Simulated scan of single mutants.
Amino acid sequence: MSDRDRFDRVVFAAAHVVAADDRAVDWDATLAFRHHLWSHGLGVAEAMDTAQRGMGLDWPAAAELIRRSAAEKAGRICAGVATDHLPGDAGLDDVLQAYLEQLDVVQEAGAQPVLMCSRRLAAAARGPEDYEKVYGTLLDRVSEPVVLHWLGTAFDPALEGYWGAADVPGATRNFLEIVHSRPDKVDGVKVSLLDADHEIGLRRALPATVRCYTGDDFHYPDLIAGDEEGHSDALLGIFDPIAPVAARALGKLADGDVEEFHRIMAPTVPLSRHLFSAPTYYYKTGVVFLAWLAGHQDRFVMLGGLESARGVEHLAEAKRLAEIAGVIDPEFAERRWRQWLASR
């Protein structure tokens, strides 16, 4: 039985894009990487922040990415719905229309929508009622249950005060009201606040039919393993570089071997915490660097030149921790590392 048949968690890897240069996507290599993720039984979370959404990947390119990936899907696929094609001075009705335009693209492509947080909505909303208006309308329009994405300010400082509250407890109450108002339209919520205790409390407060997809790249093994009251499923950026290792661990978990799940996962946690260290939104650089060291792409280059966002010391430590975690071949990675150092 393959790993994909034995998982008892729903798991998505938020996949990066492979760049041909600092302005263009290498479509063949990008789609090949999605097939790599599917081959290990992981779903693909497409056009999310790992794919440089809003940091090099604009909406026209994201729409093409969603269509291309969904057209040849070999496993689960969900895709980000946002408002990143709007100008900065957009009003609330503009934000809603932009969400609806992107929602139509994702649904027509055949991917499950992930309603991402919107910088434009954060700027335009005046209170929780504005979030209810926008998200309520979106949920009324979806053709299948969607994932609601709560991205914290560590990932995007422009999302301060999201859900209409300055504090996390208040935002949580407002968020839960939206979920409870239409539970049949919500497959799950993805929480990326890097606060395990908050996530556990939130998932216990969800309707019984709504999943909690952890987006916590610091504490994911414990959250996925769960406790006597439940567990988190996963939609994680770290699953991009650690897919083969994560698949082995998830297979053990499905077999009931929680100890072996933790043993396999444990070495990936220091790597993840390093990649997602502050400023957290530059984690994408380390993810792409490891994909290059693993041989999934021919060049270490990113859209918008984002490969320069992390320094040599950070990347050297990422390489060391990735070797310990067993996600790259040490000899092959060392050759590429020396090649890269010599070219600088």
Rank of each mutant, 00 (worst) to 15 (best):
I242R: 02
H274C: 03
A254M: 03
A70D: 03
W163C: 06
A196V: 09
A123T: 11
K190D: 09
R335H: 13
L202G: 01
G251L: 09
W340A: 08
R141T: 12
P113W: 01
D187P: 00
A98V: 04
H219Y: 14
P145W: 04
H180I: 06
G286Q: 07
Y213K: 05
Y99N: 00
F300I: 01
L271Y: 10
D156W: 00
T280H: 11
L202R: 01
D216T: 05
A196P: 06
G326T: 10
C78F: 00
G201F: 05
R67G: 01
A154S: 14
G215Y: 14
L253N: 10
V168D: 06
R141S: 15
L303E: 02
D28S: 09
A111M: 04
G251R: 12
T285I: 03
K190H: 07
R248W: 11
Y131S: 01
A47T: 03
P241Q: 08
F12H: 14
G152D: 09
Y220T: 05
V327D: 01
S232D: 10
G170T: 05
L275V: 08
W59N: 05
T83Y: 05
S192P: 02
R344Y: 05
K185C: 12
Q102A: 02
D222A: 15
V258I: 15
L65E: 00
H35L: 03
A154N: 13
D298W: 00
V186N: 00
L236E: 14
L148N: 06
V114F: 12
D233W: 08
R68M: 11
G304Y: 12
D28L: 05
L202V: 06
L159T: 01
G110I: 07
M302I: 01
V95P: 03
K133E: 08
G127K: 14
A254P: 06
G230D: 09
R173D: 10
A109V: 00
A70R: 05
H262Q: 12
A196K: 12
Y213N: 05
R335G: 07
K190R: 12
A124K: 04
R120C: 13
R67N: 02
Y281A: 08
V189I: 12
E331W: 04
S232P: 00
A294S: 14
F289W: 11
A342C: 01
G237W: 03
W163H: 09
T83A: 03
P145Y: 08
R335D: 13
A205M: 07
K284A: 06
G110P: 07
L37A: 09
F289Q: 00
E307N: 04
D28R: 08
E108M: 10
R23I: 02
M265I: 10
V258G: 10
L236I: 13
D89V: 04
G305K: 07
A70M: 09
G251S: 15
F7C: 06
E101S: 12
V189F: 10
F33A: 05
H40P: 04
H149R: 00
R173E: 12
D21A: 06
E323I: 15
L194V: 06
A243T: 15
L138F: 02
A61I: 03
R336P: 10
V81M: 04
V245W: 04
F218L: 13
G188Y: 02
R34G: 07
I77T: 06
Y99M: 00
L100P: 02
E72I: 13
D8E: 14
S343M: 13
V147D: 05
D49C: 07
V81I: 12
